[in-house]
């Protein structure tokens, strides 16, 4: 029962992007298309789940004072694993996400969950917490990417809905990221209260 709650809280109620406002850099930086958003979300999910599992498994063996450095090393290792794997098997996605893959290391969600949840709970609930948070993050990024892609270039997941030349370019560019996220949070807050 608790695990169900651990899973679902990350999706909406404690959604890392819309509710907690964590991990803003990749959220704004890579969401020029739904596909990029989803790719980034899943990469982060993998790191979150793996880091949560390992950290909750070794938490008793790590002295309190060096907790954070140890967590960072574990997280950075998984990030590098993602980086290398993506470069080998998904080179075009790797090219479009670019710098933001290594920057998963400093994504506040990952270290935040490690510190706030995994270092206090058992392996299974930590894994579920990571999965829920990761999927919530993916959901937010995909949604943001889809809206920007649709408004900016008339496509969703690369499928042309209307002619690209009628798209509002600004939504694919930097300012569009801020604007769309601002209005998405507004809409979500509205539904939350209702």
């Amino acid at each position: 029962m608790d695990n169900v709650k651990n899973f679902t809280k990350g999706l909406i109620k404690e959604n890392p992007v819309f509710a907690l406002l964590l991990g803003m850099c990749p959220t704004l930086g890579v969401t020029t298309s739904a596909e990029n958003g989803l790719g980034m979300g899943l990469a982060t999910t993998f790191v979150l789940v793996m880091a949560n599992i390992v950290i909750s498994a070794v938490k008793n063996g790590i002295p309190d004072k060096v907790r954070i450095p140890a967590f960072i090393i574990i997280i950075a290792s998984f990030v590098t694993v993602v980086e290398l794997t993506m470069q080998a098997y998904l080179p075009s996605l790797f090219a479009s996400l670019g710098l933001f893959i290594p920057l998963i290391v400093v994504n506040c969600i990952v270290l935040g969950r490690a510190e706030a949840f995994a270092s206090k709970n058992n392996v299974i609930s930590s894994a579920i917490d990571g999965l829920g948070m990761g999927l919530g993050f993916s959901l937010a990024l995909t949604l943001l990417g889809a809206v920007r892609e649709f408004l900016g270039s008339g496509k969703v997941f690369g499928l042309q809905i209307y002619d690209t030349n009628y798209g509002m370019l600004v939504f694919v560019l930097a300012p569009g990221a801020f604007l769309v996220l601002g209005y998405l949070i507004l809409v979500i807050n509205r539904f939350k209260k209702a």
Partner: peptide, 17 residues
Amino acid sequence: GMKGVPIALVVAGILAM
């Protein structure tokens, strides 16, 4: 509804523009 984060993000968007 715009108070807090949403308006800040929109302002940031305009600044980026």
